[in-house]
Nucleic acid binder design. Sequence first.
DNA 1: GTGAAAGCGCTAACAA
DNA 2: TTGTTAGCGCTTTCAC
Lengths: 351, 351
Amino acid sequence: MAQQRRSSSRSSNGSKAATITQVARQAGVSTATVSRVLSGQDGVSETLVQRVHEAARVLDYQPNRVARNLRRQATQIIGVVISDIQNPFFTSLLRGIEYVIEGAGYTLLLTNTDEDEKRERMYLATLRAEGVAGIIIAPCQGNRDAYCAFEDGATPMILIDRAIPESTLDAVTVDSRQGVFDAVSHLIQLGHTRIGLVGGPDRVSTASDRKAGYLQALSQAGITLNPAYLQSGDYRQESGYEAMRRLLELPVRPTAVLAANNLMTLGTLQAIHTYGLTIPDDISVVGFDDMAWAGSLKPSLTAVMQPTYELGLSAGKLLLKRIQDPQRAPERVILGTHLIIRDSCGPIIKK
Amino acid sequence: MAQQRRSSSRSSNGSKAATITQVARQAGVSTATVSRVLSGQDGVSETLVQRVHEAARVLDYQPNRVARNLRRQATQIIGVVISDIQNPFFTSLLRGIEYVIEGAGYTLLLTNTDEDEKRERMYLATLRAEGVAGIIIAPCQGNRDAYCAFEDGATPMILIDRAIPESTLDAVTVDSRQGVFDAVSHLIQLGHTRIGLVGGPDRVSTASDRKAGYLQALSQAGITLNPAYLQSGDYRQESGYEAMRRLLELPVRPTAVLAANNLMTLGTLQAIHTYGLTIPDDISVVGFDDMAWAGSLKPSLTAVMQPTYELGLSAGKLLLKRIQDPQRAPERVILGTHLIIRDSCGPIIKK
DNA sequence: GTGAAAGCGCTAACAA
DNA sequence: TTGTTAGCGCTTTCAC
């Protein structure tokens, strides 16, 4: 089996990768011709095309992208800046982005800020220095200043999931306000009036939008807000657990709760189980963002589904359009949500 | 508020980024000096150091990495090839990788193959052409040939999570066999003898190792294997659901089941709920890989925890070592697992 | 301690 | 149709 040790197939001449000059020499043509053939330009005779391809094959030639990028003053890389790579919501956006971006011949350079402004700044600088063709970012803060350096369009940038007030950047977001409004209205229809919110960090637009939807649903139903029912965290699981604990410690606790993102929903459920309560008999739960595990829970989770794939798709398309025409007017796409009703919400009956 | 429209701060001279030549002119020195100062070499007089820094600041100069990479014939990028970006297991590896790699001044270029060999081949070629300093890969197939082109060390490559037989590449894996052995032994200790396995795709080393652990635990306890209890899928949720359905349709169904990865565990739970069965009274469940949601399930999930962070950490360190010394002997790191006992497994009592 | 100059591998004018 | 050549922006000898 292990008869031939080293580099079995492939060219094993020395070790370094072949350059265009070697291919040119091998084929007996100029480097210009090699370049033309391999980048698919026409205007080269059939004979030479053959010779070049043959030479490239023999030498296992792969054009050096770094050199090409330097010469062309443009790369084939799209940077994606994600605020929490551990959150399946963000990774599911990638599917849509990948589809569009790869179809156009780009590669994704993915970075993860962990909701840390410093890391975000650093990565943005790196991506610019790396000369990426464009950036798709889920910004970790709502301050326009942090991103206005990109408004000149030198490096096209698209905001995804989170909007930034007054920014002139293209953006794709979800109508969080409406989504939460629908969900809370659903709870109200089931008879709930004591509804808690496990909200997100206010500096992020989705969090404030979701809070707005919650308030709107309450006020529209004529329910007075109990400020104690409004707890918030940082979109991570642990903070959802803590926020829900605070709600459950209340003298008169809510009969229903909405958790403002997927990870905080997990924390919320954990807290409810810790307190030995039953869903939906003791308390109804709606989650924002419908994740893979929602159907595996018992009871299965009623949740606001976000069109994650479409979100990524739109962002990718917007970026491609922006790269093609840097002068076009900024575009904002807002996608709708859909309430998936499963088994975690019940009518108010007891207590 | 919106008084000054365009590029508020920063240098707004023209639009293109400043080059080293401009900085040199501005500071009244040569480009060589600028380069020396900005890359932190000593041997430059204090006066010039000051002048260069000042000039760079004024022009908002960011060295062009593409040019630097071409000149140095090396990039500051590490490519990571992941087989399923939607699977939290893989994204949690990234944490550890990031920590090491960023500490050493590299940036992660992340790609996602979706367990597709063609995509994997394409990305590997792209990363090589992009001149990455190294690659960390969770290979989507067990065939050595696909990766032996990297055994010459021209582009250092580290295998993570999945091993490849006979490969001379460095690798970091988990002792899956032992992990499953422990878990199944736990079930046997609880009195179970009819134990099902929702296994993974055989071409992946972790899947065959896990199956081996299952078989070993059974045989060591003197339990004869019922081949019908051995079902498998492709590590995705849907296939876990289908595999579990097949187990539940059996005339004599298992009283306990082990699901071979996190996503298939979700599918397994879904199937059990669909059939109206209760965990652990009707059936006990152990999952391989302990995920964020494990504690939010009801009952909470007994699972084999993998040291994901350490896995990433080791892979990062191994890569750094390999980059520094391409000649060193291949190293294989195997990390242990830990069985987290929660509430999804019970003693065999009924039926 | 500093600068001049060569050149990394490629592409795109411009010539022929 | 093909080749010659001038850089892209940077780093790094090699002189001074």
